[in-house]
Design a protein around this nucleic acid. Structure first.
Lengths: 241, 241
DNA sequence: TAAATAGTGTCTATAAGACATTATCTC
DNA sequence: GAGATAATGTCTTATAGACACTATTTA
């Protein structure tokens, strides 16, 4: 996304240009990390140890490192969110599905100062959940059920979580998003459960199987060795190819 | 989107809080204003009169007014884009479909300084196009064909236009987005043409009519008086209800 | 054997693509 | 009347929902 270099005609201008002292906002990235635990959609929240909203639950995130005018290059938004994801959860961008949600910039969203937040959502496979560590100041990190009824989050983070919830509902049928919400190996009922959780509608086993069969035919998924032991009939195990 | 007030426990902290001098980016809003003229998708571009990228075409936009810490409240992103839309095009947010596209924040996107841009797209009904004036420093505003082949825009604006193009393609069938790209009164072929332009695929007249009939049945659209004179058989005129 | 859930098959309603046909205007 | 395009109808196929039924395990 590097901009093309400015024309030579601009060079003189740039050499003499001094960023004016217009007041500027701080810019943060916030992460809505979602997973499925015990058949419930969950979001990773961190209990704030400092004001404002001390003691409230909030999304993991932090400020974008902007660099110092011409000396330091600074980081892109994608780089910032990758860094924060690693710092606050120990997760790598390679292991999760990560996508920008949008910018949230109401003047009153942070009582300290003007902060514009660029929110991302991250889908975390359930088998990676045990590896998530609340690092740094994230000593108190927990996976909370979504929607977190009665749990009023810090800042405008309720709205950001709602936006993420809505986004995955829109995308579940047109993308392979569900892939990032089941363990690496999974059964048909487990995958079906993800669709049910995200859409909010129960999924018919027979009809879902037909959809799954199409994924098998298209070699999107394949059989994996072994069987999943349940309370009744064991289920065949699959994985994404 | 007002944040809930911080607890009283936070009050003391806030009173003594001074925003630290971390370097901050400038934050801008850029507008991808789209319309249909002569059966072609068009984007409103403004010729830059100042460096950087002097003489290049760019999206209309401007900096978000942040306010001064505690004295001035500043404007939200939605307020900023509404103001810029008015200033640079004379259009009101009430007259267009306006939606946030996302944030673009590569460190090198602006050679002057670090600028993070929150992009919006605006759908402008063709009958409003004559009222669009390039106001302020937008002395040279033109509706350019999308994709603007060979026309390399300033900054990373090519990518932003591409993102808008992709977004409306995704949304055309699931939302009533087409409504904002036809004149207030329109014929079935005109509406069909909008779908063809946005999807990039020709739309079968017979099949499209069936879809349109469903809109009539649902009272989404209704007959309008008069007929549209064409080179051959005149077409009936409709409007959205 | 009973209970539970995995897995299969079938019927039907709806939506979508292809395409032939008719209607009504301008030139 | 010729040409053009609006408007209509029909056939076929793909998709999706409802639901009955069979299979295989644990308790």
């Amino acid at each position: 996304m590097r901009a093309r270099s400015a024309s030579s005609a601009d060079a003189a201008f740039l050499a003499s240009y001094k960023p004016s002292d217009f007041s500027r906002p701080s810019v943060a990235v916030d992460i809505v990390a979602l997973t499925v635990i015990d058949s419930l959609l969950r979001v990773l929240l961190i209990r704030r140890a400092e004001p404002p909203f001390r003691g409230r639950w909030a999304l993991p995130g932090g400020f974008v490192r902007v660099g110092d005018a011409h000396r330091h290059r600074g980081e892109s938004l994608d780089e910032a969110v990758a860094r924060e994801l690693d710092e606050e959860t120990g997760l790598s961008v390679r292991d999760v599905y990560l996508e920008q949600l949008g910018a949230f910039g109401h003047p009153d969203r942070d009582p300290r100062m003007r902060v514009i937040s660029v929110a991302y959502y991250a889908l975390v496979r359930p088998d990676l959940v045990p590896t998530v560590r609340g690092g740094g100041d994230a000593a108190h990190a927990e996976w909370h059920v979504v929607p977190s009824r009665g749990l009023r989050l810090a800042f405008d983070h309720d709205r950001i979580v709602d936006a993420a919830r809505e986004r995955i509902r829109e995308r579940i049928h047109t993308t392979s998003l569900a892939r990032s919400l089941v363990a690496r190996t999974f059964t048909i009922p487990e995958l079906r459960n993800v669709y049910a959780i995200v859409t909010g509608e129960p999924q018919d086993p027979g009809n879902f199987r037909r959809k799954f069969q199409a994924m098998l035919d298209a070699r999107v998924v394949e059989r994996a060795p072994g069987k999943r032991i349940t309370a009744s009939k064991p289920a065949a195990v699959y994985r994404f190819a």
